[in-house]
Each structure stands twice: as structure tokens, then as C-alpha cells.
Amino acid sequence: MRLVLLVSASLTLIVVDHRLHYLELVRQGLSVMTTPLQVAAGMPVKGVRSAGEYFADLAHLQDENARLRREQTELATIRLRQEQLDQENARLRALLDMRERVQIDARVAEVIYAVRDPFSRRVVIDKGLTHGVEPGSPVTDDLGIIGQVTRVYPLNAEVTLISDKDQALPVQVARTGVRAVMFGAGSGLLELRYLAADVDLREGDRIVTSGLDGVFPPGLPVAAVKSVDRDGVGGFVRILCVPVAGVEAHSTVLILKPGKPVDPDTAAAGTAPAADKPADKAPKK
């Protein structure tokens, strides 16, 4: 009887609700009351799903950042390499221009390493006897003189820089033509020696090769006067100069062929040929 009564009541409520919608308000009230329970019941599942998505996105972002860092490093390396190649190309073009200016047989060489000697300034280049390098050959860069070949081996050669204390170079002042000898003074500086205290010399004067040694072509830039101390010992002036070339910096150099000796008397007399000089008179008997 209970089952029949409950089934009958259920069917009656279903029919009445379907026809007249009397239980709509009740259903809405129950929905409002059960919504928090449904949300609370779904939170663990939603939390687990959100955590999974978070860690997946985190791993993806980490992979993406690592890839971007690799690409950035590769691009930076390519950019640095490109800048190095541009500088090297510019230096090679300048060396070729220097070879055209000096109008002498010359070849390009690379500096392999610097000699580990605290008392000298020398470097080793990758050209030697098999490449036609001769002892005493002048070595320049695109700006001026940097040294001289002092030892030659079959595949490489040793260059003594002009900043070495034992290296001497005959030079002259471009402005006045005064001739002197340039020595290495250490610490990358050069020194003009054996000049009188009243010599006409100023800070900033250009020093070039004189060519009197027959090795270095005349007129090649060597240094610029940095300081002039006229209170030197023994009546001589102390003159410090700064090299104009990258003496201890550049890795690409130009090896010149040694020139022919120059007669100091001819150089002092000027450019007049020997044939134009008056002949000496024969002595009378």
C-alpha cells in the first residue's frame, strides 16, 4: 500500500508539474541551495586540472626561454664575428692602400703570438723564408712602422717592435727635417735621443723615417711627439713620443722588402743627380 501510494503520488506530481509547472519555484530553490555543494565537490578536480595546466605551461615557457637564449647567444656570436670580419677587412684594405703608397714589394702576414719575454717587445708572424721574408725587413700596419724582422725561420719570423729598448730607428721631424734616432722607451713609448736642448721641436710634431739606414723607406709615419723636456742631462733634450701605429695591438701586418742604402751626403745635399755636380778640377803639376 505504501508503495502504491508513493508511486501514485509521484506520478501525480510529475503530471501536475509537467502540465501546470507548480514545482518550478521549488526546483529553483533547491538549485540555489545545492550550487555551493556542487562547486565544492568540483574544486579538487578543477584544482588538479589547473595545476597540471600550470606546470605544463611552465615547462613550455622554460623550454621557450632556453631556445630564445640559445638563439640570442648564436646571434650575438654571429654579430661579433661579423664585426671582427668587418674590422679585419678594413685593416686589410688599409694595408693594401699602404702597399700602394710605399710603392715597394710587400706581403701581408698575421701575428701568431707575442714572445713571452719581460725584457723585450717581440712578436712572431706566420711568414718565413719559404714566403720570401728577409732578415731586417721593415714591418708596418695601415698607420705606420711597428717593427723590424730580426730572426727568420722557414715558416715564421720574429719581429722586434720599435717599442723594444734595444731597437733603434733613424728618423726625422716632418715639419723641420731634423734627423735623429728613435729608441724604444718601454711602456709602449718611444724616445728621441742625442738632440740639442735648443732643437726646434714641439708637442704633436710628426716623426717619420729618414731612410738613411737603407732599410726603412723614407717618409713612413713612426710617432708623434708627446712631451719635450729641455732640462735634460748633458745638454740634450729628452723627447718622448707615442707610436702612431698599433705597435702592440694589430694582428695583421705588412712586411716590406728592405731598400737600398742611402748615402747621407747625397741625402743632405738634396735630390740633384750626381751628373749635375761640377767636376773636381785636376791638380796642377
Score class of each variant (00 low, 15 high):
271 T>K: 09
237 V>I: 11
145 I>C: 04
88 E>R: 14
27 R>C: 05
285 K>Q: 08
240 L>T: 04
87 Q>K: 12
139 V>L: 03
208 V>H: 00
35 T>E: 14
88 E>T: 15
234 G>H: 11
111 V>E: 04
47 G>I: 14
175 R>I: 02
147 G>F: 01
180 A>H: 02
123 V>G: 02
113 Y>V: 11
210 S>N: 05
20 L>Y: 07
59 A>K: 14
238 R>N: 02
93 R>M: 06
47 G>R: 11
195 L>R: 01
63 D>M: 13
197 A>F: 02
134 E>P: 01
18 H>V: 10
80 L>I: 11
30 L>P: 01
18 H>F: 09
60 H>G: 11
140 T>C: 10
177 G>Q: 08
275 A>T: 11
61 L>I: 13
32 V>C: 04
41 A>T: 12
126 D>Y: 05
138 P>G: 08
209 T>F: 00
282 A>I: 11
261 P>Q: 07
273 P>I: 10
207 I>Y: 00
38 Q>N: 12
100 E>C: 06
65 N>A: 15
209 T>E: 03
169 L>M: 12
42 G>A: 15
219 G>T: 09
20 L>I: 13
7 V>S: 14
24 E>G: 12
73 T>D: 13
121 R>H: 04
277 K>L: 12
9 A>T: 08
109 A>W: 02
96 L>T: 13
38 Q>L: 10
20 L>K: 06
88 E>K: 08
102 V>R: 03
221 P>G: 06
202 R>M: 07
164 D>R: 03
21 H>T: 14
229 D>H: 10
104 I>H: 09
241 C>Q: 03
169 L>N: 01
141 D>V: 05
151 R>H: 04
231 D>H: 07
54 Y>Q: 14
51 A>V: 13
43 M>N: 08
106 A>I: 07
219 G>L: 05
172 Q>W: 01
168 A>I: 06
102 V>H: 04
233 V>K: 03
181 V>R: 07
62 Q>P: 02
195 L>A: 02
216 F>W: 07
270 G>D: 06
131 H>P: 00
152 V>T: 07
67 R>L: 14
199 V>E: 00
121 R>Q: 04
46 K>Q: 13
144 G>E: 03
